[in-house]
Amino acid sequence: MEVEVRGGTREENESLRKLTEEIFKDSGLAKKQSKVLIVVDIGIPAFYVGIKFKKDVEPIKVGDIASIREQSGKTKLQINEERYYDQVIEKLGTFYGKENVEQSERNIIYINSTDENVRDIVIYDLTEEIRERTIDVLWSILPEGFKVRHFKHFEDGFILVSTDIPQIREFYNVIEDIQKEFGGSWDV
């Protein structure tokens, strides 16, 4: 993870950078971002944070956590990871209808049809959770008490503005700057 802070004096930037790094490490999220950029504007005061997640974060599919076999017209799923039981049953239910999904044992689920694509059903998107948890962590990094929070989400990241005053033109300029810098799908 690369953290960059701009806007204050060198000393201030350095201490905020250190703090950010430490808090991310403590939260266990330090390896999920490729870049964190914080721009400080003490005068307004406003904090801009741009965060870009790493590309290698893939969503979890049924095939990743279950061994799948066809058995007399039914599909048998033996689930290896306990923590995903809920999500699997819920996702399969919405896909095939609740009446077609049957949990015979604790870790065995039958579906009353055969479907090749069952493997590719996304049961859990980690990026979503990381996004949420990253935002949570940011609340403990950004100064307390700012009244306005404004998000702009992208596929692999987001830009956050935290400030005391309602939107002004200045914000868009900075946000655009960060967008430009991050590039790729962030193009203006």
Binding site: I42, P45, P143, E144, G145, F146, D164
Partner: peptide, 8 residues
């Protein structure tokens, strides 16, 4: 009670 923030 309200010691946070720069302006507030």
């Amino acid at each position: 009670a309200r010691g946070y923030g720069k302006t507030i």
